[in-house]
Simulated scan of single mutants.
Amino acid sequence: MPTDWSPPEGSWASSAARRKNMQAIRSRDTKPELLVRRLLHAQGLRYRVAAKPLPELRRTADIVFRPAKLAVFIDGCYWHGCPAHYVPPKTNSGYWSEKVLRNISRDRDTDRQLQAAGWTVLRFWEHESADDCALAIAAAVSRLRDLRN
C-alpha cells in the first residue's frame, strides 16, 4: 500500500491498517452465534439467521423464531458496551465511545419496538456460556409455543 494513503473523506479509519482491521470484523456468524446456533439445531429447533423480525424495522436479530415471535441477539462486549468487559479505546476515543453509546441506544429502541409488536426479546453477551444461552432460548421457545396453542 502506498505510504501517502489517507482515509476517505468522512472515514472513521485513522490508518490503512485500522481500516483493514475494522472491515474484517464480522457482523454475523460470529463464533458465539455459531456455537449457540449449533446447540439449538442439535435440540431440533429451527430458526432464521440474521433476519428482520419486523419487515418495516431496518434491524436484524441474530436468531429469529417467527411463529414463537422470539428475537435473539448475541451482543459483542465491545460494540454493545458490556458493563463487565467494555474498555474505552485509547485511539479516537471520542468517536468510538459515541458509536458504542449509539449502539446501546439503538438496542434499547429495538427492544421497545419489538416488544410493542408482541415479540419477546432475549439478549446475551458474547462471553456468556453458549450452553446456558441455548437452554434459555429453548425454554423460551417452548413456553411461547405453549402459549400459542
Results as ranks from 00 to 15, higher is better:
residue 6 S to H: 08
residue 91 T to D: 00
residue 20 K to F: 11
residue 98 E to Q: 04
residue 20 K to I: 14
residue 8 P to Y: 14
residue 40 L to F: 00
residue 113 Q to V: 00
residue 60 T to E: 05
residue 144 L to I: 06
residue 71 A to V: 12
residue 96 W to M: 00
residue 38 R to E: 08
residue 148 R to I: 15
residue 72 V to Y: 03
residue 66 R to K: 07
residue 76 G to H: 07
residue 99 K to F: 03
residue 142 S to V: 06
residue 27 S to P: 01
residue 148 R to M: 15
residue 28 R to A: 06
residue 114 L to Q: 12
residue 81 G to R: 11
residue 137 I to C: 00
residue 58 R to H: 09
residue 137 I to F: 00
residue 71 A to K: 08
residue 63 I to S: 08
residue 115 Q to S: 15
residue 93 S to P: 02
residue 30 T to F: 13
residue 53 P to R: 03
residue 130 A to V: 11
residue 47 Y to T: 10
residue 50 A to S: 13
residue 15 S to R: 13
residue 94 G to S: 04
residue 128 E to I: 13
residue 48 R to F: 11
residue 106 R to M: 14
residue 45 L to P: 07
residue 110 T to Q: 03
residue 6 S to I: 06
residue 138 A to G: 05
residue 36 V to S: 00
residue 64 V to A: 07
residue 20 K to H: 14
residue 42 A to F: 09
residue 116 A to Q: 15
residue 32 P to Q: 12
residue 91 T to A: 06
residue 126 E to T: 14
residue 34 L to Q: 13
residue 97 S to Y: 03
residue 49 V to C: 02
residue 61 A to S: 14
residue 50 A to Q: 14
residue 87 V to W: 07
residue 46 R to M: 04
residue 100 V to H: 02
residue 59 R to A: 05
residue 16 A to F: 10
residue 6 S to T: 11
residue 137 I to S: 01
residue 147 L to H: 11
residue 79 W to I: 01
residue 59 R to D: 04
residue 35 L to Y: 12
residue 5 W to R: 13
residue 54 L to F: 05
residue 9 E to N: 12
residue 26 R to V: 09
residue 97 S to A: 07
residue 34 L to K: 15
residue 54 L to M: 06
residue 84 A to T: 12
residue 50 A to W: 14
residue 136 A to I: 02
residue 133 C to G: 01
residue 10 G to A: 02
residue 64 V to M: 09
residue 92 N to Y: 06
residue 5 W to V: 10
residue 64 V to C: 12
residue 48 R to H: 10
residue 8 P to M: 09
residue 27 S to M: 02
residue 90 K to S: 11
residue 91 T to P: 01
residue 90 K to A: 10
residue 106 R to W: 15
residue 32 P to G: 06
residue 145 R to I: 14
residue 62 D to K: 14
residue 125 W to C: 05
residue 41 H to F: 07
residue 9 E to C: 07
residue 121 V to C: 11
residue 34 L to W: 13
residue 38 R to S: 14
residue 55 P to W: 07
residue 28 R to D: 01
residue 29 D to V: 03
residue 1 M to N: 02
residue 92 N to Q: 12
residue 113 Q to P: 04
residue 61 A to K: 09
residue 118 G to C: 10
residue 91 T to L: 04
residue 10 G to I: 05
residue 38 R to C: 09
residue 13 A to V: 09
residue 145 R to S: 15
residue 89 P to Q: 15
residue 53 P to A: 06
residue 136 A to S: 03
residue 19 R to Q: 11
residue 123 R to D: 00
residue 111 D to C: 03
residue 90 K to G: 11
residue 14 S to C: 12
residue 100 V to Q: 09
residue 60 T to M: 05
residue 129 S to C: 00
residue 4 D to W: 02
residue 128 E to W: 07
residue 75 D to K: 08
residue 46 R to D: 08
residue 102 R to V: 12
residue 65 F to G: 00
residue 72 V to H: 05
residue 79 W to E: 06
residue 120 T to Y: 02
residue 53 P to I: 10
residue 65 F to H: 00
residue 5 W to Q: 05
residue 7 P to R: 15
residue 113 Q to E: 12
residue 71 A to T: 13
residue 3 T to S: 13
residue 6 S to E: 01
residue 38 R to D: 10
residue 61 A to L: 10
